[in-house]
Write a protein that binds this DNA or RNA. Structure first.
Lengths: 356, 356
DNA sequence: ACCGTATCCGAAACCGGTTTCGGAGCGCAA
DNA sequence: TTGCGCTCCGAAACCGGTTTCGGATACGGT
């Protein structure tokens, strides 16, 4: 309890040496005799000496800390993968005994201002940015500050900084191909606001997938909403109430897809039979949806780990533009995809006719 | 870019003052004339001066940082609420410009050793511990280290430290009462390893609920497994394959409950009709389960915020034993609870007779 | 005996802030 | 004019480490 934690001075006094000698002994300087080096290390162990990191880092000149910027929207539909990502990041940092700071931009100050304060205050050596906008001012800021950073995702122009991403465009092409093979020719797109780059990418993939399969791109089949389950329900509702409703829906997130399933249930349509639905994310939870959700799964496991490794490399002086890692998502077939139903486009109409 | 970030010395030189004067001016010391105080602050603003936090904290003597210890098990079934909790914690800390560190005990070193290193190295002023064991060595360690901490959850003996928890025992009494009112008399319990205090509490609540309703506590109706969906499936399988299977299941987590639903589906039993299922957590996801999961919901939203406030109070010198916050969970009725079915206990037997 | 060269350690500056202490300059009363 | 007190700022120590520089000792060779 009462014992002040032993610092270098105390340790030196205990050993009848000076602090400089002790410090160099602990740091394996060559100009310290092996004998005293061992003596110092032994005493340090026994007394439980732990260098004060604030002092150390001040002296060293690096904070030995990186920061993860939490995505804003943490509503009731929390981001399940934040925990996994942090775990991976922490793993990479632990190997160097670096620290992981998490920060959400202080709402009262504004994103940019609080980032600027963070790096200018010398607390962090690098930053991880999540879910960037199409043209994200945060990356510009980081570049002008000259502070190492890596982006989880991409912006529109992404040549001149490091990022790790999953190819959403490719994933949606794959999804559309799959649906086209099943006979679908009217496929609805449930998207998120296009200011998010990931939303734009996936829409691009949707369109490319359509043309690749010789299908027309009708703007009425594209619905944008907030990426929550409620947003998905609303968007799917609009699509299914069209005069010629789609026979399949692709959604930019699993959460939206789950919401879409609700909209189908409300219209007495069976997902995977009357209407196919494909989500995106590969959330573990989708397995328990009603029915189990077919989705484009991204390899979440290593994202955090890779982001950490990349960021550390850049801090070590590597060229950021060398790090452009694009992973591929793969189709996880569960139960919401199926061949186009014979009475396609009529199912809901007939159903709705007998209901009062 | 190239500009070294302005430090106190540079600012002082720019103003033709000494660093001590500038420092005191910025910190509103009374022995600085209002005139120079304003002059200093203005210049600081214009030059974008940000005090180096490492230096500041070394001098101040406090790291102005608290740490959240991530729960170990971050498998594919990630902890969805970690993000929410961190958001709340961060909010509380932001108001003071304190930092939030997250750390997962380094596996290679061991939980206790890495905690000990963390606090002895002067990096943190306080710690948040999650999901404690019945007798958790981490709280003992923190106590002997004399480092402020708060526990999210409780241990068996929890008088002499601060905690924030949801009353799991009460919640399970409530759940059993609800099921008893619906006519259930054989209720199975799907639990987690009893080394976790939360698992023990909820089992206690289960038992107390049974006796309170005049029901017998049969040990064969209690199944312990890992708290994953697979664990829930396995446990539910064992219970439903008993000679006299239960007509209702209570599960210590929503994830296990979801797994239990799978086991029911595999036996052609309809949750909420043939067998009732009640989970615990109130995960948003449960709404989209098949069928929507009835659950005991805990007020997750404020947990992080409260934990942060409590921890800061203790760091400020408040008596930790004053902080024992017990929240209540409430029943969220969705579709997996219902009256006991007339052919209770027979449904699966008959079903299984016609298969193969 | 003398010089040169390693080997090993102590002295001191430094990182960038905070805080205590003392003293210069001023006004005012005796 | 001397003395007292008040306002305002500079000098310097300190937080706890790291790192450069120089010097003392021992050792080898001639």
């Amino acid at each position: 309890m009462g014992e002040k934690s032993v610092n270098l001075k105390a340790l030196a006094a205990h050993l009848d040496l000076t602090v400089s000698t002790v410090s160099r002994a602990l740091n394996d300087y060559s100009d310290i005799s092996p004998a005293t080096r061992e003596r110092v290390k032994l005493a340090a162990d026994q007394l439980g000496y732990r260098p004060n990191q604030n002092a150390r880092r001040l002296s060293i000149g690096t904070p030995e800390t990186v920061c993860y910027l939490m995505p804003r929207q943490i509503g009731p539909n929390a981001q399940p993968f934040v925990a996994q990502l942090l775990a991976g990041l922490g793993e990479a940092l632990n190997e160097r005994n670096w620290d992981l700071l998490v920060s959400q931009a202080d709402a009262s100050v504004g994103d940019l201002a609080s980032i600027e304060r963070l790096v200018r205050s010398g607390r962090i050596a690098g930053l991880v940015i999540s879910r960037p906008l199409k043209n994200d001012p945060r990356v510009n800021l980081m570049q002008s500050l000259g502070c190492p950073f890596v982006v989880h995702g991409r912006t529109e122009k992404c040549d001149d900084y490091a990022w790790y991403d999953v190819d959403g465009e490719d994933a949606f092409v794959t999804a559309i191909n799959h649906l086209a093979r099943l006979g679908h020719r009217r496929i609805g797109f449930i998207g998120a606001p296009l200011q998010y780059q990931f939303a734009q990418e996936r829409l691009d993939g949707y369109i490319r997938g359509l043309t690749h399969n010789g299908l027309a791109h009708e703007t009425e089949l594209v619905q944008i909403a907030e990426f929550t389950d409620e947003g998905g329900t609303a968007a799917a509702g609009i699509l299914m109430d069209l005069l010629q409703p789609p026979t399949a829906l692709v959604c930019v997130t699993d959460m939206m897809a789950l919401g879409a399933l609700e909209a189908l249930h409300a219209r007495k349509l069976t997902p995977g039979k009357d209407v196919s639905v494909i989500g995106y994310d590969g959330l573990h939870f989708g397995k328990h949806a009603n029915p189990p959700l077919t989705t484009m799964a991204q390899p979440q496991a290593h994202a955090g780990r890779r982001l950490g490794d990349i960021l550390l490399s850049i801090i070590d002086g590597a060229d950021p533009t060398k790090f452009h890692e694009l992973q591929r998502a793969h189709l996880v077939q569960r139960s919401t995809d199926g061949p186009v139903s014979s009475n396609a486009g009529q199912a809901n109409v007939s159903e709705r006719e007998d209901s009062p």
